[in-house]
Design a protein around this nucleic acid. Structure first.
Lengths: 142, 142
DNA sequence: GAATACTTGACAAAAATAGTAGGTTATTAT
DNA sequence: ATAATAACCTACTATTTTTGTCAAGTATTC
């Protein structure tokens, strides 16, 4: 349960590759595709979303590719997933804009809200820098 | 993202109703259906799974219904969702039995594992007792 | 102008979700 | 006995989401 779609998974892995080119080496879709075993066409969709969100920048033509818009320690996993999969919302009624009609009498409303906040907080603390430096492992052990 | 299916959501709400009958008042599907706005037919499917898992017991015939197999403070939300939606597994390769081929070179593997463990730990601390007593609210504020 | 590389929109197979429908079995009360 | 109640079981299906592919276009460099 609570599975992430491949778009989210591949998106984070693609961002990792782009982060490795920080601050000024553009990374092409083809390179990402080869290193992460994801088709070029699918990556195009994913990176397009992230570019429109302003998380990455693109440079066309030979020598082009993708670059981070900010330094790796400023880009959290939460930010990436937010663009690709929308905000954390354990139930549909917790999505922004979606008013929950039975929130007052719903015994589980606060539970799902609290869980969502936990997840969001966790994903906010982890950045591309942690991924690139392999620090996720250390985190896990403490 | 990270949405729970309706089966999981309804399941927890149904368990809440059954917990209210603890220790010896059987709760019928019809009652749950009316109180939680979920069809009888759909609830049958859900409660059947939970019964087969041994979390609840059933009594047939007039005066029958469902009862908890253990006291509300011994039944966690994690246990309920585990039966209805399977274990927490942010990615398919983290499902029990599913060996991850590229775990060693996958930079996100440990991240998803850590997130899953966080979620599981959270859901393990919350029980039906918290739901019935409205204690989820208090938890959330601390 | 040829090659590179991103951009865009449409499409489609496959899987998961969210249920319905209809009949069966067990128990109780009359 | 039999009627009523309530759980049990299996199959089916429409819809939505996921997971991509495909084709054509635009911008840039050499």
């Amino acid at each position: 349960m609570l599975k992430l779609s491949t778009k989210g998974q591949y998106g984070v892995r693609a961002m990792y590759e782009i982060a490795r080119g920080f601050p000024d080496t553009p990374v092409t879709i083809k390179e990402i595709s080869e290193r992460q075993d994801v088709s070029v066409a699918y990556l195009e969709q994913i990176l397009n979303k992230l570019r429109k969100a302003g998380i990455i920048k693109s440079i066309k033509g030979p020598g082009g590719g993708y670059l981070l818009s900010a330094s790796p320690d400023k880009i959290s996993i939460a930010a990436i997933l937010n663009e690709l999969e929308g905000p954390v919302a354990i139930t549909s009624c917790l999505e922004p804009g979606e008013g929950c009609v039975r929130a007052d009498k719903c015994v589980t409303h606060l539970l799902w809200k609290a869980l969502g906040e936990q997840i969001e907080a966790f994903l906010n603390t982890i950045t591309l820098k942690h991924l690139v430096s392999g620090e996720v492992y250390k985190r896990k052990r403490k």
